[in-house]
Design a binder for these strands. Structure first.
Lengths: 109, 109
DNA sequence: TTCCACTACATAGTATCACCGGGTAGCGAA
DNA sequence: TTCGCTACCCGGTGATACTATGTAGTGGAA
């Protein structure tokens, strides 16, 4: 992954994962797969798990342990009310930043 | 500044500053002021100076010392060829990320 | 003169975050 | 048994923005 992308993901990857959980609950391995599907092909697995630990500790998600047919039990994360608010705040922040950056891109030419 | 914004700026602030320099050369204090004008009202002065040191060391900008009528001499930064390429790469990375995030925002509803 | 406000640059220390490399464990197929 | 896939976890690293503070030069007010 390019260094630029790595740095740019800081702060946004969290929102991306929460947005995925907003659609429907999912477990870590699944989230990683979904990220890859959506174009984030180089997100490291370890990164996702670390992120999930953080959002769980901050109380943004609820966790349920579900046995799996294949491999160890899954930890299924779902966005709770607090997480929903946090996600909305994320979108506001993103909008703010994106608008200003787009503006800069225009002004540059 | 919100923590979300702080984290989201990581990786993007650099591109923002380079984009400002792409329009015309500027010195640190001036860049800080321009950022505030453009809505980034809470960027700390020290953050900008630290960033300028980094981009200078990476050879993305040229520097000229210019005496000021008021206060100490200014260090005027201008984007060079290498910085121009880097900025283009930044825009590509930004576009990629922004598109995927917008897509998520749609899919969420 | 003395003091303050504004301009202008600089830096040491802190927190956060994504990545790297590796590890643990359960299950089914060759 | 061994391999491959599923699934989770962790310690250490590098990069970045922020906080708080300091240094200097200039000009105007008290």
């Amino acid at each position: 992954m390019s260094k630029q992308m790595t740095e740019m993901l800081k702060g946004t990857l969290e929102g991306v994962v929460l947005a995925i959980l907003a659609v429907q609950p999912a477990y870590g391995y699944e989230i990683t797969a979904r990220l890859r599907e959506q174009g984030f092909s180089d997100i490291a697995e370890g990164t996702v798990y670390a992120l999930l630990v953080r959002v769980e500790q901050r109380g943004l998600v609820d966790v349920a342990k579900v046995p799996s047919e294949k491999g160890p039990p899954r930890k299924v994360y779902s966005l709770n009310a607090s997480g929903g608010e946090y996600l909305e705040e994320f979108w506001r922040t993103w909008r703010f930043l994106a608008e200003r950056i787009e503006q800069l891109h225009q002004g540059e030419k």
